[in-house]
Design a protein around this nucleic acid. Structure first.
Lengths: 355, 355
DNA sequence: CGTTAGCACTCCTCTCCATCGAGTGCTAAT
DNA sequence: ATTAGCACTCGATGGAGAGGAGTGCTAACG
């Protein structure tokens, strides 16, 4: 009955698949009899038990306690999603329709779109949804405006190609007049428009401050002013739909909820996760302990990057229990990423109206 | 032993006070013996029992079940906070210091300040904190800017006296040029600066659209454009610190947490609550069933309005279990409201630097 | 007449234990 | 290799009983 440690024959695969599907559809360990009833394999429970014992030995399943049914391990889920990912991922047209309809009515800045996306995504998937806006390296400055605000304040408006808008208030340290500001604005746009925020932040400003002696004081002041506004630029994280997953039996334990809530409230935590996803191609599935965030070891994350000019811009995804409907979740996330990529593409040409 | 239905003699008051304080300090019904031990009244438990029975009859206390200790009713808490409110409310200087220190470093727009305020408030009180930014009727337009953005988009920037900044993207339906926009901007500022958003929304625009024939088409277009941007203006609600109250024994029940979370996630819900508070003077305490929101019947809300030009602008407050430390919570909320009022006052004169 | 000691009683909470049932692992038969 | 049969394990369920906190009542007291 010995079989090589990692090779799964066809029959084992089918049983493993059956166990995982059963477990996803209703919680609680799945037993050998249930599998034989639900899936007509043509084997008796005893045979299935043998196979399940093998699968356990190989690390795909485990027993919560002796004489309970089997439950998939992270390795088991991994097997399951690998097979899903091999298939063509279905474009989720319901989702696409819903979300495009919403966008048509708002047609707002990118971050409003991301916020709407997470809402739609969590409503349709019944899991938590998250989205991350492009970071400094993925955002190209289109226009910067310095406007006189209050007596000693200036409002800085940053408009980007990606449809992200940020405003910022800075002190008018040098008591610059409206016409000064207008001149500075022109200068800034001439110098910096078309560069990414990251480039502006790291290279240009440093460089120009270095040989500032060559410039007149107004330019020097312009650089100092916009430094503060530029430096605060950071990606925004949107997370919605905690209520959606609250009813899953895996959150019957109150400590779990508290832990989860604390984890997502601390958004810096999520950054770690994003890095892992941002530089990979296609839909990423992170199961349980594969997650760098310890608090999410009981959860699965499905995420994908959306792109701008063929470079990864931001991340969109779903967070749910490990026992989640991977097929529909993967399809939803993939669709979301495609839509966001499309919006950015069209945005580059001026956000043409969809027909 | 009968005594008139609502009059509390001095001794009863002292006992009631003792029971409530005991209950606030540690959960679980408080018994007659505990009271005599902890507070040296000079009476035996039996006497206290009699008094407590009277207090129960009058509706200030109740028994969770026969032969348990007493627990305050909402009426009991009401008695308690009325006495607190009669006293001079202590200015919470720790809080004031902390928050002013933070503001000094950010010195940002009003909504960032509100966001920071809730964070500090929840961290210091260990309850949930909320804040509401001024609504359309409390916000005076200082400046509006229309900037060409993408090919067929215009970015609208709204700057207000209260330090609230909003940006909005609208369609450039009329293919207006940069110089058109600049002329429109001038026109809008000339006409509307100094009015509240509400006034602009309701009266001015309607009026001007009515006799639009008298105006040239550019003005007509200007009005239409800014209508959309103005109309979306709404108050923002900030709520932080759910994690702070998660550990209180009243949330040992998982359903309670879910319910609470759903309640605060639906921000429209909170609006109802705000109305009740916004038009009252001083610190408001809303105990349990006094709350118009049914889901908050097990909670208490402590809130106060902050003002701008002597008119109520927004609301800041704390949400916690009924069994909460009212004395410190009231002091914190009062201090927060005063600070925000002060910031708005100073903002009116140009956000002068604090010395 | 208010106050107090004493005592029976109530009701919650915790723990223990028996039962039940689902599901396994093993063995022997096919 | 597969299967039927069976003993066994372990969690879940629920009832019984002990323990304890606290009350309400009564009768005695100053």
């Amino acid at each position: 009955m010995e079989r090589s440690a990692n090779a799964l024959d066809e029959r084992s695969k089918r049983v493993l698949w059956a166990v995982i599907e059963s477990y996803i559809n209703n919680p609680g360990p799945v037993g050998s009899r249930y599998v034989t009833k639900k899936y007509a394999f043509g084997y008796s429970p005893a045979t299935i038990r043998n196979i399940m014992a093998d699968l356990e030995e190989m690390g795909y399943l485990r027993q919560p306690h002796t004489s309970a049914g089997r439950v998939p391990t992270d390795k088991g889920y991994r097997f399951y999603v690998e097979h899903i990912l091999e298939e063509e991922i279905g474009y989720h047209s319901d989702f696409a329709k819903t979300i495009l309809r919403r966008f048509k009515s708002i047609m707002q800045d990118m971050e409003s779109i991301l916020s709407e996306t997470t809402k739609t995504l969590s409503a349709l998937s019944h899991y938590m949804a998250m989205a991350v806006s492009p970071g400094p390296e993925g955002v190209t400055l289109r226009r910067i405006e310095l406007l006189p605000y209050k007596e000693d304040r200036i409002a800085v408006l940053i408009l980007t190609d990606e449809g992200i808008i940020r405003h910022h208030i800075i002190k008018n340290e040098f008591r610059l007049s409206a016409s000064d500001l207008s001149r500075i604005t022109n200068f800034l746009n001439r110098e910096f428009a078309g560069y990414t925020i990251k480039d502006i932040k790291e290279e240009l400003i440093n460089e120009m401050i270095k040989d500032k002696e060559e410039f007149d004081t107004l330019v020097d002041r312009a650089l100092r002013l916009c430094t503060e506004a530029i430096e605060t630029y950071g990606a925004n994280i949107f997370i919605t739909g905690l209520t959606e997953i609250l009813d899953f039996p895996e959150f019957a334990d109150i400590e779990r909820i508290k832990e989860l809530y604390r984890t997502i409230e601390d958004k810096h935590n999520i950054i770690k996760l994003i890095d892992k996803i941002a530089h990979s191609e296609g839909v990423q599935v992170i199961i349980g302990t594969e997650n760098p965030i310890k608090e999410l070891h009981t959860m699965s994350v499905i995420a994908s990057t959306y792109k701008d000019k063929d470079r990864p811009a931001g991340v969109v995804g779903i967070i749910g229990p490990k026992r989640m409907n991977y097929i529909s979740a993967i399809s939803l996330v993939d669709t979301a990423a495609r839509i966001l990529t499309k919006i950015l593409e069209e945005g580059g040409e001026g956000w043409k109206r969809r027909k």
